[in-house]
Amino acid sequence: MKKIILFLSLIHFCVSYCQISKINASVVKVKFVEVDDFIGEDALGFSYYIKDSNFIKLKNSENWQYTNIALGKIKRVDIQNPLKIVIFYENFNCVVILDNQLNEIKNINFSLENQEISASAIGISSQGNLWVFNSITMQLGLYNYESEVYKKIGLPFDKKIKSYSSNFNTFYWIDENNNFYSCDIFGKVNLLAQIPTYDSIYIADENTIVFGNQNVLYLMEVSKNKIYEIEISEKTFKNFQYKDQNLSIFTPKGITNYKINIP
């Protein structure tokens, strides 16, 4: 049965995107690190990692670490604002906000708040807000960590979130049917595309998605409905990041940075 489902998925993939071009990726830099997860790099060149539940910020001889054993495993980290780094501990329904030296600015326990919030998606937004998806109400909202007020935006979701990403003004998600949506801070929702079958994915923005399927990496230009197969040397990878035609591949051996030239 699994083979039949996989075969049908591949047929759907090929029919929907039968003209898949290949693009070359040129190696820029290779970094050997022994960590559990690679979060990304900021504009100042600092790299962020997770190792044994420790959150690490590293650049040359500069090294900071944050550990909160009581909250268990880190589910997600948002480093879009290096001065306010957001760490999400889903198992304990908690969020910790750190400064640029990984000191705690705010520790938020949604289970202790007056509202019934069970967070399953978190990201930093603008004006002192966090994106928070409440799995109890199946609704997206903005939580102001300064005033400690939660405001629902938009309507409840029909389907569960499969994958998500966000920036200061927009929350992106892919539902269980692989529909790709966006929602702005005013609650306006747009259906952007239907995403092919994937094993892993990175949503860069509303127009650019990188996804892996059967150990092959693809780049999708949403507005043009085009998909490119990215030719890289890695056959397996733990995760990947993409921004401004720069691709970072994380494997058990380390991180390889590529430059991609899109036609």
Rank of each mutant, 00 (worst) to 15 (best):
K3S: 12
I4G: 01
L8V: 11
L8E: 02
S16N: 07
I20G: 02
K31C: 08
D37F: 10
I39L: 09
A43S: 11
L44N: 05
S47H: 11
Y49V: 03
I50H: 01
S61W: 02
S61P: 08
Y66S: 00
T67G: 05
I69M: 07
A70S: 15
A70L: 14
G72W: 00
V77R: 02
E90W: 04
F92A: 05
V96P: 08
L98E: 01
N100T: 10
F110C: 04
S111K: 10
N114Y: 13
E116D: 13
S118Y: 12
S120L: 03
G123S: 05
Q127G: 10
Q127A: 13
G128W: 13
V132R: 00
N134S: 11
S135A: 10
T137F: 05
Q139M: 07
N144S: 04
K151Y: 10
G154V: 06
P156W: 08
F157K: 09
K160V: 10
S163A: 15
S165I: 00
N167Q: 05
T170L: 07
T170R: 09
F171L: 03
Y172E: 11
N179H: 14
C183T: 15
D184H: 04
G187I: 06
V189M: 08
A193N: 08
T197A: 12
D199P: 14
I201L: 12
I201H: 04
D205N: 11
F211H: 03
G212F: 02
V216G: 01
S223W: 13
N225K: 15
N225C: 10
Y228R: 13
Y228C: 07
Y228F: 15
E229Q: 13
T236R: 06
L247R: 05
S248T: 05
S248Q: 11
P252C: 03
K253Q: 12
I255E: 06
I262M: 05
P263N: 10
